[in-house]
Write a protein that binds this DNA or RNA. Structure first.
Length: 288
DNA sequence: AGGATAGCCTGCGGGC
DNA sequence: TGCCCGCAGGCTATCC
């Protein structure tokens, strides 16, 4: 389940493979995963960056964008089980199932392919979105809150304060809302709440200034720590080279329902909050 | 209009 | 052993 650290790990491992190469061919095996927003009519081939030289990989929250030298942009949402893999030469993907898009890359126009890029997504919660620079990507990302990792601490804190202000939603729902802060998902929402010592069931209106600051710091620290370990490994996540991360070792509450709290030993209850499995410690994260 | 909810989709693990 | 069912959850659409 890719959240921000997983997508950033992917960006970092994928960029060295892709930047500077040109898209030779693009195949869309499952057309419904591609969304062509932004008005203009364009072919699928064009939307998939065929012919473009790739100059940059950008990320905001959990979304990854591949930028072409002619301004075309392909934005990738990994959803739950999405993977982007780079295969060198004639290397084959292990389970070659659920491949929805495939690109061949070349170092020069008409040259031999040095590798292929594969988008694989068994559950199909992810997808591709095509746009153009300048404008459409910025507009799309403007709907998201500040990036949980790259934004200033001040921006992060104020975004969280705005999200909580006047809101009766549970803090958990606020943290999962990508329009408030971009990049936090179920895992790191629970981990950040535990680090900050705040009950995720409390409504936004009940979170005071001091707690908002603590929470923003906990979010940043949690995401940063996970990124350092190359992201969490939970069933599906692998980076561009097929390697999984080691951040699962850092989880203190996520996936530990029923087990003792690592700080105080209290058995950790599992609850449903914002339709998501939520684990927290009733003693370290008091209800008020 | 904020907020809650349903639905999408496949793999896997628990239980019998 | 093997089958069935429940669950995992990011995001969009829809309803209240």
């Amino acid at each position: 389940m890719p959240e921000l650290p997983e997508v950033e790990s992917l960006r970092r491992t994928l960029a060295p493979h892709l930047v500077g190469l040109r898209v030779r061919t693009a195949r869309l095996l499952r057309p419904e995963i591609l969304r062509l927003d932004g008005g203009r009519r364009r072919s699928r081939r064009s939307a998939l960056l065929a012919g473009a030289r790739l100059i940059e990989l950008r990320r905001h929250g959990k979304q990854l964008a591949i930028i072409g030298d002619d301004g075309r942009v392909l934005c990738i949402h990994l959803g739950m089980t999405g993977q982007l893999r780079f295969l060198a030469g004639d290397e084959q993907l292990h389970p070659a199932t659920h491949i929805h898009a495939e690109w061949t890359m070349t170092a020069e126009p008409g040259g031999l392919p040095p590798g292929r890029l594969i988008f694989r997504d068994p559950r199909r919660f992810g997808g591709l979105w095509a746009g153009a620079l300048p404008g459409t990507l910025e507009a799309k990302w403007a709907a998201l809150g500040p990036d949980g990792l790259e934004s200033s601490m001040e921006d992060l804190t104020e975004a969280l304060a705005r999200g909580c202000r006047g809101s009766r939603r549970a803090l958990k729902a606020i943290l999962l809302d990508q329009a408030v802060i971009a990049g936090v998902g179920n895992i790191y929402a629970d981990e950040a709440c535990f680090s900050a010592g705040i009950d995720p069931a409390r409504p936004g209106t009940a979170i005071n200034r001091d707690e908002t600051i603590r929470l923003a710091e906990a979010i940043r620290a949690t995401l940063q720590a996970a990124l350092t370990r190359g992201g969490s490994t939970l069933r599906d996540y692998v980076d561009a080279n097929g390697r999984s991360g080691a951040a699962t070792l850092l989880h203190r509450v996520y996936g530990r329902g029923g087990q003792p709290c690592l700080v105080c030993g209290t058995p950790l209850p599992t609850r449903l909050l914002a339709q998501r499995t939520t684990v927290s410690c009733p003693r370290c994260q008091p209800a008020r």
